[in-house]
Design a protein around this nucleic acid. Sequence first.
DNA 1: GTACATACTGAGTTGTACTGTCAGGAGGTA
DNA 2: TACCTCCTGACAGTACAACTCAGTATGTAC
Lengths: 154, 154
Amino acid sequence: MRLSTKSRYGLRAMFDIAYNCGTAPTQIQDISRRQHISQRYLEQIFQSLKKGGILKSKRGPQGGYMLARAPGEITLKEIIQATEGDLLLVECASKGRKKTGCEFDGVCVTQSVWLEAAANLGDFFATLTLKDLCDRGASMGVSREQDLRFVYQI
Amino acid sequence: MRLSTKSRYGLRAMFDIAYNCGTAPTQIQDISRRQHISQRYLEQIFQSLKKGGILKSKRGPQGGYMLARAPGEITLKEIIQATEGDLLLVECASKGRKKTGCEFDGVCVTQSVWLEAAANLGDFFATLTLKDLCDRGASMGVSREQDLRFVYQI
DNA sequence: GTACATACTGAGTTGTACTGTCAGGAGGTA
DNA sequence: TACCTCCTGACAGTACAACTCAGTATGTAC
């Protein structure tokens, strides 16, 4: 049971934007450099996050990506759901979706367990926001990069 | 993020043993038939469960598999750990193990999140035992198979 | 309206781990 | 000795994750 790298990278990138930049658009190449994630791959991940409604983009010079809402309003659950597609532990526990094809669907003791566990995990991630991560970062002393563009623009 | 089929099948099989049979050895072919899991594949899974110390086996005629402890003493956490190998959400959050190779190891905000989430999930599975599942099965009205061997042995 | 910077899209590639299958061996019981 | 059951390791196929690439669209500045 592993989260895909899309979730791991996605969370790191979202944190990176929230932590290093305020409301200014962040370019993908900067995030790529800071987080050591392939630029091309990040582009792909960011499309998922955009579809999830938690990331906005702006094209052209001085363009880039920015959070769609305030960091305190974006939960980790949303981020993981956007990158992972869902928050299920097993395929057959997709409550409310169309039939799963499992012959034991509905009369399976373990199915109920997977459902509860997934809900449990979802609740945990829902309690955390990007702002919480920023606070952690600050207290852990994670270095915060100055936005170099302003330096050169003086 | 999905659990492997080894965990799903493993839990189903453990439940099957606890639910359908008491202390008598259960043969793999019976479990295979009831749970619709390939016999060969089950053998493989059961080796993991044996290594985890929650399943015992007996060879020869009237042999089979039995729970190593009482159903109330076997938690789902043990079962999943035995089949899954661990209970991590990401590779880099393997607390206490040797270095993971991640360049952000130790100074990563997200790492701490994955650790907590995994601990959370582990705690959830630790609160449930096979006995709990049997209770659920009974109240859900899951059919319990009579042990056919005794019928034919009259 | 040209040049440039940035995001956007979809198709390709590669590796590896999951999900089994198979053949044969080992160990008990009668 | 015969049979039953578990045990083991090797093997195969397939799907998916994890990227990579080429090219396109769209916005800003001059």
